[in-house]
Amino acid sequence: MVTGMVTTKQRPPTEAEVWSRLEAVMDPEIPVISVVDLGIIRDVAWGEGELTVVVTPTYSGCPAIQVIEESISDAVRDLGVENFRLETRLSPAWTTDWLSERGRERLRDYGIAPPACRAEQVIDISRIMHRREKVIACSHCGSSATEPVSQFGSTPCKALYRCQACLEPFDYFKEH
């Protein structure tokens, strides 16, 4: 939990204004997707003169969470908020289902293939095995002729794939 104090004479920002400001806070590992589009901001609420921002990291041990929390704190301070707190909520666990459509498009435009299916579709082992046969479209040329290279990519949430049509490697944002 992070707390902060800033003095201000202005009216406090509305929850909508806070959400809007948080849309400009980018994920440090994928700098084209905001923490809002990533779906890790779960709630923004005023209560008893204090702003609470609820964050659910993509992984409980996410190495970027400290940087993300500092960026969120800076954004809230930029709005002139006097009292705020960041609350980390691990349950329910974050899922790629929480990615916004805009976030999925930004991933694709950046060269990262977004999750091919919803996380709830890969709950049991038979579906997980079927998912491995699922076609992941190349983020460069759109071809469905792709193959996994490694289940471990540049960050814990990505896998490495290769396109057999354009021969380019690309990251795939794993569903979970």
Rank of each mutant, 00 (worst) to 15 (best):
R11H: 11
D97R: 13
I125M: 14
Y110C: 11
F84R: 04
Y172C: 00
T52E: 10
S100E: 08
P148D: 08
T14M: 12
T52Y: 02
V36N: 03
S144G: 15
V36T: 08
T96R: 01
E147K: 10
P169C: 03
C141D: 12
T56D: 01
T58P: 09
A93K: 11
T52I: 05
L167Q: 08
E120N: 10
E133P: 00
P115H: 01
C157F: 08
S144Y: 05
C138N: 06
T52R: 12
F170M: 08
G103K: 03
R104E: 13
P12M: 02
I68Y: 00
H140S: 10
T58G: 07
G49E: 03
A119E: 05
D124Q: 08
V122R: 00
R42F: 06
G47T: 07
K174Q: 10
P31L: 04
V2Y: 02
V32N: 08
I30F: 12
A113R: 00
Q151D: 15
G142D: 11
D97P: 09
H130G: 13
R77T: 12
I136Y: 06
T3W: 08
M129A: 12
G61A: 15
E48M: 10
T7F: 05
A16W: 02
R89F: 03
L51M: 12
L99M: 12
G39Q: 07
R162D: 04
V53R: 13
D97H: 09
V6Y: 02
G49I: 03
I30T: 04
R21Y: 04
E175Q: 04
I72Y: 06
T146D: 11
A165M: 08
V36K: 04
H140R: 13
P156A: 11
V135L: 11
R11Q: 07
I128T: 09
S91A: 13
L22F: 06
L90G: 13
I65Y: 02
C163Y: 07
E15T: 11
T96Y: 02
A165C: 02
S143T: 01
I128P: 01
